[in-house]
Design a protein around this nucleic acid. Sequence first.
DNA 1: AATGAATGAGGCTTCATTCAT
DNA 2: AATGAATGAAGCCTCATTCAT
Lengths: 199, 199, 199, 199
Amino acid sequence: MKKNYDKILNAAIELMGKHGYHGTSVQMIADKIGVTKSTIFHYFKNKEGILFAILEDYIPSATKGFIQLANDENINGIEKLKKFIRYHLNRVAETGDVLNLYLSESKYFGEENQEVIKKSQIEYAGLLQIIIRQIQKENSHIYKNLNPKILANAILGMCNWAVMWYDEDGKLGTEGIAKQFCELVLGNISKNNRFLKYY
Amino acid sequence: MKKNYDKILNAAIELMGKHGYHGTSVQMIADKIGVTKSTIFHYFKNKEGILFAILEDYIPSATKGFIQLANDENINGIEKLKKFIRYHLNRVAETGDVLNLYLSESKYFGEENQEVIKKSQIEYAGLLQIIIRQIQKENSHIYKNLNPKILANAILGMCNWAVMWYDEDGKLGTEGIAKQFCELVLGNISKNNRFLKYY
Amino acid sequence: MKKNYDKILNAAIELMGKHGYHGTSVQMIADKIGVTKSTIFHYFKNKEGILFAILEDYIPSATKGFIQLANDENINGIEKLKKFIRYHLNRVAETGDVLNLYLSESKYFGEENQEVIKKSQIEYAGLLQIIIRQIQKENSHIYKNLNPKILANAILGMCNWAVMWYDEDGKLGTEGIAKQFCELVLGNISKNNRFLKYY
Amino acid sequence: MKKNYDKILNAAIELMGKHGYHGTSVQMIADKIGVTKSTIFHYFKNKEGILFAILEDYIPSATKGFIQLANDENINGIEKLKKFIRYHLNRVAETGDVLNLYLSESKYFGEENQEVIKKSQIEYAGLLQIIIRQIQKENSHIYKNLNPKILANAILGMCNWAVMWYDEDGKLGTEGIAKQFCELVLGNISKNNRFLKYY
DNA sequence: AATGAATGAGGCTTCATTCAT
DNA sequence: AATGAATGAAGCCTCATTCAT
């Protein structure tokens, strides 16, 4: 069931990922899966509806695991941040196309849909802020006097940006990149635990 | 002279900044400055040509000051990085619209123009890599074993991303944000040099 | 039984009355009564079929009472005309929506259906002509030398036109309007017969 | 100049007159005059814009002469009414197509345009009411106790309706029909002037 | 009796672009 | 330098309708 519905979404992800939202016509999607335009409008109210469905599907899958992590009481903040970076970078690598749509094309949405997207972005960033605050609480000298909101945005930007340059075939996998990112934002802290002894 | 030419560019920057490249029709630009579409095509071969002219104008202005900085032999790497972050964030704040176009809409360019954009991006990132290498050389323990290319991308991403959330009316100006960014990626280093003594 | 059939017709009357035939899609009708488009085509061959069914239902109900009136040998022509005007105006007020469809949208019908409508219109006007002729016979000076066909059309137009301006909430009900119409076309005749004495 | 503009309007009048607004596609208009659809949208914002332009052109031409008549102080009311009927019926005969559009298709207009149409209709009917009031003033027994508004609508309806049945090739021209209408609504009054002597 | 899937045809509209002036 | 006319191509979307279930 809903076989065509899914086909449409998949084709749209691929095409819009490659050519952008505006670079992808409904016709192109229809052609790609061998149906008529009409079929697409049978399932979706709009061209915008297609993209929105993609993102609606994508958002919770992005947030789900992360909510758990942010609220897990058995992990310290630093570990959480490291996990977050690894986790997020993996998503960037795996679902870069969708992320790209999520980030750059949702500005063309109508008000209502745009609201949904913005809320989800704020929620996501909020979870990262929680982690950063935890770090600040647990380690009196780390990120001292720094604004969690800005830090969260900084780290998110760093990771999201990978969409622009990450090369699947590059030497470093996401793990490698994640490690480097962690060291960048956590200093040598992450190498050994000597840090924790001092403070 | 070239009065209309400039008017067109300015209108295009504003409109495309607000509505995106595809959300801005040639007609809209014409209306904004009170000429006809035809006039626009008198000055530009293409709609693409308008955007390209904007970016062509923007790119060197971005790189210019930075080349000097990267090659200035009288400043140490850490200071250079700090300056770069301040400098770049300022640009983001001031010319966010154009930056946005530069980053997200150039994918619709034809091959030739796209090449130009990509080259400029690589050049820009390259300059940042030079700085990072200088830091590594000057401070044996900072960014040790870290890949300059990845670090450069990380820092660029961090800054560019501000386009998405920077609020002109927010409490922190770009200076404030820059400081926080610096502390994030340079640790306590930036406050004083005690950091180096401990580790 | 035929529950849905009737629901469809009623919904169609209301919607088409409000938005016109072309302004009403099959989907709208389906939505209004909570079924699918398919259900509608289960009951009707065509969209045109829906409208035609409405009119087919409406026409005889309009003519029925009137045939009797026209042929009633116990009433004089003037009284008949007065009754007709009252009767017809009432219909206009009560079933204005359908009348509107009947009058203005049947032009979109296929030939066959259009024929049916036209015939009914001619029949209806014919009945009114009979009444007018009776008046002429009974009162040598009224409508003297006037063409019954044209008079019938004039009176019909006067009444049908009310569809365009009749206001349910207006002060004058249909009775009041009918009286005024009668005086207009029957002069003082209708009040008493003094008229005939003078001229 | 504006040659195509006029061609479009003329073609639209003819086509919409025959097939109705909805039965006439922009393509049909374009084909009829041998231009492309684009050309039509070069001159008109909308399909609605075409019809509106037609009516906008038609309305004043309808009201113009009539305003003069209504306010002419040298003609008595009865003569004015007779002139109006003749004048209006002529218009119906000559510009039936446009009148039809004016009357039945303007309901599909957007709010703004609809407003314009309604106002013009009210203005037109208002002029007729003025005449009727003049008649009432000048002849104490004619149309006594009758509501000018309703009378005006009645007469207008009678005339407008002719659009539905008037046959260019019929025996009676508009003059003939007008005469009959006048006798219908003015009784024998119009035949000779004895009437005026008595009252 | 009722539905969901799928479609074909066509409709309106936008838009960048060309060309003669 | 600037414009108005005209267009071709394409885009999104609507809609009535068919068919298998």
